[in-house]
Simulated assay, not measured.
Amino acid sequence: MLSSRAIRVWSWFHKWTSLVCTLFMLLLCLTGLPLIFHHEIGHLLGDEIEAPVLPAAMDAQRVSLDVMAKAANAVHPTRVIQYAGENEDDPRLWWFTLAPTPAPTEDFKSVAVDARTGLVVREYRVGEGFMDLMLRLHVDMFAGLPGKLFLGFMGLLLLIALVSGVVLYAPFMRKLDFGAVRKDRSTRVKWLDLHNLVGIVTLVWCFVVGATGMINTWADLLVKYWQYTEVSTLLAPYQGQPLLQARDRGPLQASLDTAMHHGQQRKVSFIAFPGTAFSSPHHNTIFLKGTTPLTSRLLQPLLV
């Protein structure tokens, strides 16, 4: 049983953490809703890229990854390919991200290539359109890493508000049935009962969304930690070696075949090219994923 002093302390935490994070949680809800239906909205707006219709006999054929990369690079010959990957919804398409340098940048282009013919289908609309606006507002509010960390802090306040709300729920509702809304009382009491009902019913969902969203804001920091701990250890034998020029690298398809051989029972998620944030200056890093609902979300990086 909480004392009156403890109830006041928990009430203070619940009130102020809720008030501070409410506006930003509303922003995330409003921007996150259209992102859930991004495929449907993309089709409606004509932004979705679909593979061309070819004879059924050609659907199973695949050209070399080097052919696809060359076709993508020909669209923007002054840029370098940073990343490439199979389209999650249509394996007949591969996407290639091109930027001025391998270093992380917001200046990038994305090209879709038909894996059956090696021909460019279309460029993705990068940095424009309604869905990109929603995505940027949802991820970092156009503020980069500081914006992500700020939203992560708002997520932490949401978790504190949820925990404090649970602590206060029993003292406030101990004389009422679960879900009771006292309609015969004042407007303030009715709103309080509705607040308690909605809060306790959506508790688990809100906690999962808040916790995972907060962790997602740490992505850039976790990548840097991975580079500092795991990748730096693997690159110790390469210290002092000159960097290979793009023309001196081995075939990209051979790198993928090697990775697929070592990562049996897995599919390719994406490829990070040398010098990018998810690779090293000396390797193609192939990220593989499993084939089950759980393992498809767990990536295994292989440096080749």
Rank of each mutant, 00 (worst) to 15 (best):
R5C: 03
R8V: 05
H14D: 14
T17K: 02
S18E: 03
V20H: 11
T22E: 00
F24A: 05
L28K: 00
C29V: 13
G32M: 15
L33F: 14
I41F: 00
I41K: 01
L45S: 13
G46P: 07
D47R: 13
I49S: 09
I49M: 11
P55I: 12
P55C: 08
M58V: 05
R62L: 06
S64Q: 08
M68I: 02
K70T: 13
A71L: 06
N73M: 07
V75H: 02
Y83M: 02
G85F: 08
D90K: 04
P91H: 06
T101W: 05
T105D: 09
D107S: 10
F108R: 12
K109L: 06
D114N: 09
T117D: 09
L119R: 09
V120A: 10
V126A: 03
G129T: 14
F130K: 05
L135D: 04
H138Q: 14
V139R: 15
M141T: 15
G144T: 06
G152M: 11
G152A: 10
F153E: 00
G155W: 02
L156M: 15
I160Y: 01
L162H: 08
S164I: 08
G165F: 03
V167W: 13
L168E: 04
P171F: 11
R174K: 15
G179V: 07
R182W: 12
D184L: 04
K190P: 04
V201H: 02
L203K: 01
L203D: 11
V204C: 08
W205Y: 05
G210Y: 08
T212H: 07
M214N: 08
I215G: 07
D220K: 03
D220Y: 04
D220Q: 10
K224W: 00
Y225G: 09
E230A: 07
A236M: 04
P237Q: 10
P237A: 13
Y238S: 08
Q239L: 14
G240K: 10
A246D: 14
R247H: 13
D248W: 05
R249L: 12
Q253T: 09
A254E: 11
T258W: 12
A259D: 01
A259K: 00
Q265M: 07
V268G: 03
A272P: 02
A272Y: 03
F278D: 10
H283I: 09
L288A: 03
T291E: 15
T295W: 15
T295K: 14
R297T: 12
L299E: 11
V304A: 07
